[in-house]
């Protein structure tokens, strides 16, 4: 209390000045038309800009929720893409509603562990059997292929990355139809090798490589990368093609697990 009194005595003049100026300022903006107008419009601009910035921050905080929401929506929409539907028509006059069946379903997942440095890389996802993620399902990201599910527990699953020396992905060259198998030699994480493309195929550097749809792991037409280099080897009757991946496994965050709804039917047909 004594300190407060000393403070008042010491800065009394200044505090009184501030108080009286405050009263003046209040009167100025309260009773003078012009000053009132300027004050209110200026404070509106000020308050508006603060609210704007607050809104930006709030949006940023909500971002991850929004991303989740968009991914779920994406997964739903992806299953309606034409190449992902099973063509059910067998007569010219098949009723339109019956002519297609849904073939693939997408499950949005998050990458929680990843590596690219080893020769055989694995990725861990945050969904498992409870979310219908099972062995032998393909995993893709927005702009490329990630790998194939090797193992899954109730809530997590392990994926064999495409950056694995045992990976064999059936790939074809877009709009040319030739297909081969995509492998990784364990060196550059952005480059994979496409084998078994026959020598008579006419291909150029820059052609797009996509999934062939020959296996039930991936639907036809998912982009994998573009051709970077074509070498003609001496011995075998096929090219040695270097493919630059369109997605970067090193910064992978989100993906979709592909569930083939007609897997059983396909396997039955092949077995017999």
């Amino acid at each position: 209390m004594g300190n407060l009194l000393q403070l008042l005595l010491r800065y009394g003049g200044f505090l009184l000045f501030l108080l009286l100026e405050g009263i003046c300022f209040y009167m100025i903006v309260r009773y003078n038309k012009k000053q009132n107008l300027i004050f209110t419009s200026t404070s509106n601009i000020f308050v508006g800009s603060i609210l704007d910035q607050y809104d930006d921050v709030a949006k940023f905080i909500r971002l991850s929720e929004d991303v989740d929401l968009l991914r779920k929506e994406n997964a739903r929409l992806k299953s309606f893409i034409k190449t992902d539907l099973y063509d059910n028509s067998y007569r010219l006059d098949t009723f339109l509603g019956d002519s297609v069946r849904m073939r693939y379903e997408y499950i949005p997942v998050k990458v929680i562990n990843n590596s690219i440095a080893k020769k055989d890389n694995h990725i861990t996802l945050n969904k498992g059997i409870d979310h219908e993620v099972q062995k032998h399902m393909g995993v893709i990201s927005n702009n490329g292929v990630i790998g194939v599910v090797k193992n899954s527990s109730c809530c997590f699953s392990s994926v064999m990355s495409i950056l694995h020396r045992q990976t064999r992905i059936s790939a074809s060259i877009r709009s040319k139809g030739y297909f081969g198998s995509l492998v990784w030699n364990g060196e550059n994480s952005r480059i994979m090798q496409l084998n078994e493309i026959p020598r008579h195929a006419i291909i150029v550097v820059g052609d797009t490589v996509e999934t062939s749809g020959n296996s039930n792991l991936f639907p036809k037409g998912v982009q994998i990368g573009i051709i970077k280099e074509i070498n003609r080897k001496e011995g075998p009757n096929s090219y040695d093609i270097q493919v630059e991946l369109s997605n970067d496994i090193a910064n992978l965050q989100y993906g979709y697990v592909i569930k083939d709804l007609m897997k059983k039917q396909l396997e039955e047909a092949i077995d017999e």
Binding site: L20, M27, I28, R30, Q35
Partner: peptide, 23 residues
């Protein structure tokens, strides 16, 4: 300060500009 405040208010009464002369 108090004298200035009183004088300013009295002046403002005539100028019809509350607070401006006072401040």
């Amino acid at each position: 300060l108090l004298l200035a405040f009183v004088m300013g208010l009295l002046i403002d009464m005539f100028y019809d500009s509350p607070g401006i002369h006072t401040s």
